[in-house]
Design a protein around this nucleic acid. Structure first.
Lengths: 213, 213, 213, 213
DNA sequence: GATGAATGAGTTTTCATTCAT
DNA sequence: GATGAATGAAAACTCATTCAT
C-alpha cells in the first residue's frame, strides 16, 4: 500500500491546473480567436490570473503550448497510421483526424506568422509532423493512391486549408469540412495529372519574417 | 464655365481621403492582420486619426468597407467572366483572380465570425457573390467542366481555403497558392466522382453567432 | 491685434498639460521616489492616464524629462555665474542653487544607474553641466579659491552627496543641507592640502553597466 | 555526551537559513536596489519563497534586518575604535569603514524615508550609532582633530553623503569614495572655521513622515 | 471637415504575501 | 519548518473612440 500524498498532492494540483488551463485556453482560443484575454482564460479555468502566468510565462507561451499539444496529437496519429495495412486509407484517416482537430478552432489561422510559431519546440514539432506526414504520403504514393508530385508538407498545409474552407459554415454545418476533405482527396489521386506548378514544399519555413526596417 | 473650388472641392477631398484610407487600410490589414491600430492606418494614409472616424464610424465599419470592396471586385470579375466563351476557363480565371486577391491578406481569415461580416451591405455583397459564382459554376457544370455536386458557394469558400493552405509558405513562396488552386481544380473536375458528403451549401449563413452565455 | 486662437489653442493646451505633468511628476518623484506610479502622477496632474503616455512614452522617458529639466536649469545657472565678478562666490552660488534644487528630491539618488540616465539627451545634458561646472571651477581655481586637484565633475558629484547627507534630516530641518554645503566648501579651499587620492573625474561615465550574463 | 541532531539540528538549520537569507538579501539589495523581488532573494539563498517569509514577515522587515546588521556592524567598529590611541585616526578609520560598508550598496539611499527605518529596533540602532559616533567625535574634538561645531550625527550622516557623491562613478572607479572621504575629512578639521550654519543635529529624527493627505 | 489631444477601459505582466501539502 | 503553487492587487502601457479647436 504505497502512500503518495504530500508533495505529490501539490504536484497533482499543479498538473490538474495545467490541464484546466490548457483546456480552457484551447476552448477559448478556438471559439474567439487569439484575441481572448489571459484574464478570460483564467476565469474559464476557475483560477486566478497570476496562476496562468505561473504556468505559461506569456500569452505567446500559452499559444505555443496549445499548438504543441495539437501538433503532438497529429504526429502521434500519423505515427500510428504508419502501421496501417492500407496506405490510402491511412492517409485519408490522417487527414480526417487532422482537419477534425482543427475544425472548431478559430485561432488556428491567426497563429500563422505569430511568434508562438517560432518557439523552438513548436518548430521542432512542426518539422516532425511534416516528416511523418511525408512518410505516410510516400507509402500512399508508392501504392498509387496519391499523385507523385504531392509531398507530406502539402498534406499538412491542406489540413489548414480544408479547415478554413469550411470555417464560415461552422455554425450552420459543423461537419462541412468533410465535404472539402473529400474534394481535396479527389484532387490528390487524380490518375494522370498535369504536374502541379510551383516548387513542392519540403518543409514549413519558420524563420523570423524579415522585418521591414 | 470652370467651377471654382468650393463645395465641390471639399467633396473631391472627401472622396480622395476615403480612397487614401481604404488603400492604406487594405494594405495594413493585409500585411499585419486585423490587429493593426486605427492610428497606424491613419498614419499610412497621411491623415489624422479623427478623419478615419469621420469616414468610418468604427474599426469594424472600416473592415466591413474593405470586405465590401473585395467582394465587389470579385463579383465584378465573375460578372464579366459570365460572358466568356469557355466556361471551364472562366471558372478557373475567377478562382485565380479570387485567390490572388486574397493571397497576401492576413486579415481575411481573421474576419470570419467578426461583426464586420454582419453588416447588411456585406451580407448582401456576399450573397451576390455567391449568386454570380453559382451562375459561373452552373455554366461550367453544364459543359461537364465541373462535377455536378459542387455549388457556387463551394467555389467561393474554396477561395479562402486555397489561400489559407498556402499562407504559411507566403514569405518563402509567394505564388504557392497556384499549386493548391491547381490541386483544387483537379478535384473539381474528377470525371465520375463519388458524391461529396454533407449538404452542398447554397449560401453563406451569416447570422449572429450564438453568443456563448 | 494678432489673433492667435485656433490650432494655437490646442497647442496651448498641449503645452499646459505638459507643464502640469512635469510639475506633478517632479513633485511626486521628489516626495516619494521613483516608485510612484504613472497613475498617481496622472491623478496629481488632473489628467487621464493615457495623457501621461501621450506626452512621455514610458516612465523612464518621464524621468529623463525631469532630469533634463533639472540639468538644464543647473547648466543655465552655471552659465550665468560664469559672468560673475567673484569666482569664489560664483562657485558657492552654483553649489547652493544646485543642492537646493536637489534638496527635496527623493528620486534623485534612485535614478543613478537607471536607464533614464542613458537617454542621449540626458547624457548630453550631464556632459554639458560637467563642462560648465569645470569652467566655473577653473576660474575659482585660478583665483586660489579652490584647491588644485578638484574638477568640475567633482563639484557636480558633490551636489548629490551634500543633498544625500542632509536627506534624513529633511522633514525636521529642511535647510540642513546648508550645513553640509558649508562643510564641503571648507574642504574645497583648504590652503595647502595633501593631494586627494584616486583619479580626479573628468566626466560622468554613463555607459550601460556591463550586464552580468 | 554527544547531542543527537533533534530539535537542536532544527535550530541549527534555522540559524543557517537566516544567515543565508541575510547574505543573499544584502548582496541583492546592494547590487540592484530595493526593487529586487523577494523571489530573487529566495533563489539567491537557495531557499523557497515561503521560507523567506517565515524568517521575515515582510519585505520591509527584511530590509530592516539588513539595516540593523549594517548599523550594528558600524556601532561595533565605533565601539572598538573608542579604545584606540589616536582619536583623529580613530575617527578617520570609523568613517573609512563606514563609507566602505555603504560603498557598493544601491539600496542604502532608497531606504531613507521607508517604513523599514521606523522599526523600533532600527531606530534604537541608529540612535546607538549616533551616540557612539558622538563619543568618537568628542574625543577627536578634544584633541583638536575635528572642528568644534560638528556632532557625531553629522559624522554618521556624512557616511551616506560621501557614498552618494561617489555612487555615479562606482562602475568606473570603485574606490572613488576615498577621494570624497578625504575631501570631507579636510573640511572637518579646518583650523579656524566659520561656524557651520543650521542646528547641529543631535540625533536622527525618525518619526513617521507626515503623510501628505 | 480635418486635426490630433484627451480619455479611460482593457491588456499583459509582476510580485508580495498566503496557505495547503 | 520548508516548500512552492495560488492569489489578486497594482503596475505599465495600448488603443478605439470622442471632442474641442
Amino acid at each position: 500500500m504505497t502512500e503518495t500524498t504530500g508533495t505529490a498532492g501539490q504536484r497533482a494540483d499543479l498538473v490538474r491546473n495545467r490541464r484546466l488551463l490548457l483546456g480552457a485556453a484551447t476552448e477559448a482560443f478556438a471559439e474567439r480567436g487569439v484575441e481572448v484575454s489571459m484574464g478570460e482564460i483564467a476565469q474559464r479555468a476557475g483560477l486566478a490570473k497570476g496562476t496562468v502566468f505561473r504556468h505559461f510565462a506569456s500569452k505567446d507561451d500559452l499559444l505555443a503550448a496549445i499548438m504543441l499539444q495539437l501538433l503532438d496529437r497529429l504526429t502521434g496519429t500519423a505515427d500510428r497510421l504508419l502501421q496501417a495495412d492500407d496506405p490510402a486509407l491511412a492517409l485519408r484517416e490522417f487527414m480526417t483526424s487532422g482537419v477534425e482537430a482543427l475544425a472548431t478552432d478559430r485561432a488556428f489561422c491567426e497563429v500563422v506568422g505569430r511568434p508562438s510559431l517560432q518557439h523552438p519546440e513548436v518548430r521542432e514539432a512542426i518539422n516532425q509532423l511534416c516528416e511523418v506526414a511525408e512518410a505516410l504520403t510516400a507509402r500512399a504514393r508508392e501504392h498509387g493512391a496519391v499523385r507523385d508530385d504531392v509531398t507530406g508538407t502539402d498534406i499538412v498545409l491542406l489540413l489548414g486549408g480544408i479547415h478554413q474552407t469550411a470555417a464560415p459554415l461552422l455554425a450552420a454545418q459543423p461537419q462541412a469540412w468533410r465535404r472539402y476533405l473529400e474534394l481535396a482527396l479527389d484532387g490528390l489521386h487524380v490518375p494522370n495529372p498535369r504536374a502541379l506548378p510551383e516548387q513542392p514544399p519540403r518543409h514549413l519555413p519558420l524563420d523570423d519574417p524579415p522585418e521591414a526596417g
